[in-house]
Write a protein that binds this DNA or RNA. Structure first.
Length: 322
DNA sequence: TTCCGACAGTGGGGTCGCAAT
DNA sequence: ATTGCGACCCCACTATCGGAA
């Protein structure tokens, strides 16, 4: 444990927004990893969004206190694993829940994590939470000169739209806008910080559904055509209102078939009801996982103008112009 | 009056680890 | 030995409510 002087704090959170320009805001890359407050004193302690101790899982990051000045300090940043310069969340996933020290050590050597730091809560043992962001950025660059596995997140002023386009073009998840005069509000979600995420869109075939609680719709089972065959792309379980859920259930119940129209691993089936692959819906998602599933899928409505046969499998291209 | 923030609840992909089968 | 489930990480949403703007 670090000294009692440094209280455990939750990270400040952001609301979602569309790209914009504003002179009062800076814009930085939205890093796709584990959000983490780093407590630097005689040692380094890493804490997740929910105050879980992440330190055992990332031994290669436990020397951060030796790369910083003005201790004790508390930093806010993101643990990422870089792959060709881009953060790989799936690589991080493989490490996040490892418990065996031997396996952790081998994973750390093979795919070392990096701490990307973008804010400072304590410096020289004193809170700087009430300082405006602009001032905290100055303090941060004094506390962290930059090091081997600690990187200061860069930012631009005012020109959020262009920066978002540039980041999206490079394959990054999005950007975060932060108000220059805002204090650091631990655990609070407010318009001081706005996340602007790149989303992709796909039109996919509804191949079945799974019931939810209390007669509600749980999720839709989705597929797309690849080489003339329906390929499973995962499920979508959010984005529809209660009313839309009932409408979808009654439409789908008229299309019920016995045989699944596509292959879905048994382990991913929870009382599925298969239907004739006829209805098309639009979904938004962030990326295709290595398993070929939609990540962060949300339902955007039926596409009655589309034929099922026209729906090719989502491939992670086709990103939304917002 | 309208909007914002907080909270609860449901759902997604993915991982590990443990208990029940 | 296999399976199911919970707890985490990342989330996207709907729905509600009380209070601030």
């Amino acid at each position: 444990m670090t000294g009692a002087k440094l209280p455990l704090l939750k990270p400040m959170l952001a609301v979602t927004a569309a790209p914009f320009d504003h002179w009062e805001y800076i814009f930085e890359i939205k890093w796709d990893g584990y959000r983490c407050l780093a407590y630097l004193d005689g040692n380094t302690e890493l804490r997740s969004r929910n105050l879980i101790n992440l330190s055992p899982g990332f031994p290669e990051l436990l020397n951060l206190h030796r790369q910083a000045a003005s201790l004790p300090a508390v930093l806010d940043g993101e643990i990422v694993i870089l792959n060709n310069g881009l953060p790989s969340f799936s690589a991080l996933q493989e490490r996040g829940r490892l418990a065996d020290p031997g396996r952790i050590k081998r994973a750390a050597a093979k795919m070392p994590a990096v701490y990307v730091v973008f804010d400072v809560l304590y410096a020289g043992g004193k809170p700087v939470l009430k300082e405006p962001l602009a001032r905290r950025k100055e303090i941060l660059s004094a506390v962290v000169p930059g090091g081997k596995n600690i990187i200061i997140s860069d930012y631009v002023r005012e020109e959020g739209r262009a920066f978002f386009q540039a980041c999206a073009g490079r394959g990054l998840e999005g950007v975060v806008a932060k108000r220059l005069n805002s204090p650091y509000l631990p655990g609070k979600r407010s318009a001081h910080w706005k996340k602007i995420r790149r989303t992709r869109s796909a039109e996919l075939v509804i191949c079945g559904y799974e019931p939810g609680r209390g007669g509600a719709l749980g999720s839709l089972i989705l597929g797309g055509y690849k080489d003339g065959e329906l390929v499973y792309q995962g499920k979508v379980g959010t984005g529809f209102t209660r009313r839309e859920q009932q409408e979808l259930i009654s439409m789908l119940n008229k299309l019920v078939v016995k045989k699944p129209p596509l292959k879905v691993p048994k382990s991913e089936q929870r009382h599925p009801v298969w239907v004739k692959p006829q209805l098309v819906c639009e979904v938004h998602y962030t990326e295709i996982t290595p398993e070929g599933r939609l990540r962060h899928p949300s339902y955007k409505g039926l596409r009655r103008d589309k034929e099922a046969a026209q729906c090719s499998a989502a491939d992670g291209g086709d990103f939304n112009a917002r």
